[in-house]
Nucleic acid binder design. Sequence first.
DNA 1: CGAATTCTTGATACCGATCAATAGATGTGG
DNA 2: CCACATCTATTGATCGGTATCAAGAATTCG
Lengths: 218, 218
Amino acid sequence: MRSICLPVDLELPDLDRLDAIVGTRRSVRRGDALYRADDAFQSLYAVRSGSFKTVVVHRDGGEQVTGLFLPGDPLGLDGVCHDAHACDAVALEDSSVCVIPFALFDAFCHDVKPMQRHFYRMMGSAIVRESNLLMVLGTMTAEQRVAAFLLNLSERFRTRGYSPTAFSLRMTREEMGSYLGIKLETVSRMFSKFQKDGLLETQGKSIHLLDLEGLARI
Amino acid sequence: MRSICLPVDLELPDLDRLDAIVGTRRSVRRGDALYRADDAFQSLYAVRSGSFKTVVVHRDGGEQVTGLFLPGDPLGLDGVCHDAHACDAVALEDSSVCVIPFALFDAFCHDVKPMQRHFYRMMGSAIVRESNLLMVLGTMTAEQRVAAFLLNLSERFRTRGYSPTAFSLRMTREEMGSYLGIKLETVSRMFSKFQKDGLLETQGKSIHLLDLEGLARI
DNA sequence: CGAATTCTTGATACCGATCAATAGATGTGG
DNA sequence: CCACATCTATTGATCGGTATCAAGAATTCG
């Protein structure tokens, strides 16, 4: 878990100090928010178990899912900008996070160069992840979006040591659709199509990918 | 200019050190790249004059414009993640940038806390900017996208002290379309429609917004 | 178990893509 | 500085992919 979350070589005294900073845990029930847009930014979080979505809420109530976070993913970086969070972070299932008070974390980064470097990487990763999503929303058909989404998940589960071909997805079709810029019915239709083509099997929330290469060719 | 680019109060010795770091200038001709995806990440940049677009290139040649950068905007943050840039940065017109060697800048941030803080803000802003674009691409109609784009530009010109209602836009319709996830013909049609409705006047690259509130209502 | 939410599937409508042709702008070399 | 070639923009006609509307089935959760 730490290898995903903090792939940094730290010596013992530093490691203890970090453990003290990250000490607190917090549980969030399915559907509850870890933080909301305009909440004061005080802490970063690391997903320990479960999963989260981040959503931007438009003035006229329109919601856009902008991120999906799995165990090990850092959460809350959107708040670094203006001392307030820019989106809501909502648990997709009963979940828990590590709380990382930013003031302490920042001071720690100041003293420990590899940690500073890793923090930069986390911020950079968030930027690149969103760029990739822009690419998906800007250039792909509905079919390609769903395929790209599944392949991305597969890869992320793989790096976490879980099966890259069989996993359970706690998002609803509607949330996936929002994330991908399409409607829930379209998501459902694409799943049906892929199933018909022998690329995957679905049974409710659990998904079994049968042909990763086939999905990649779409 | 510095007030956009570095809104930080620095004392004199620090200011001199920063000037030394930022010393170098670089000119980029229209259509040329300041950097390309996979180039080694060595420097950040600040736009001095002109404008840039960032583009992500898909394996099958598909291009997606992911950002538009005006004077004062920081450029290159996408490279902080993996020691290599994640996109191309291309000049939309003959332009110039300040070159900020990252190693020196990082050391400076380490010593000067307000600067560190400002760097965090820049990274955070990049994340929030992309979230907003995700919102545009995920939830808005073509008409709304073009209106939102023009209003965003208007606001950015305003904060820079330029006219918020009359400006010249060096992007082609195709580039705007790529940025907004629609085709160039659709961009053109929306401009024509807005013109018919008395919301703006266009003449080639120069745009005159006549009714900001009307655009916002769309 | 039972109510509520979520999912699937079908029929139809509409927005934006595509194809195409003309007009206008931009830049280059004579 | 003009003439020509090229790139860019506009506008129209048509097509297709997704959204929308609707109904019923499956799943989830209290």
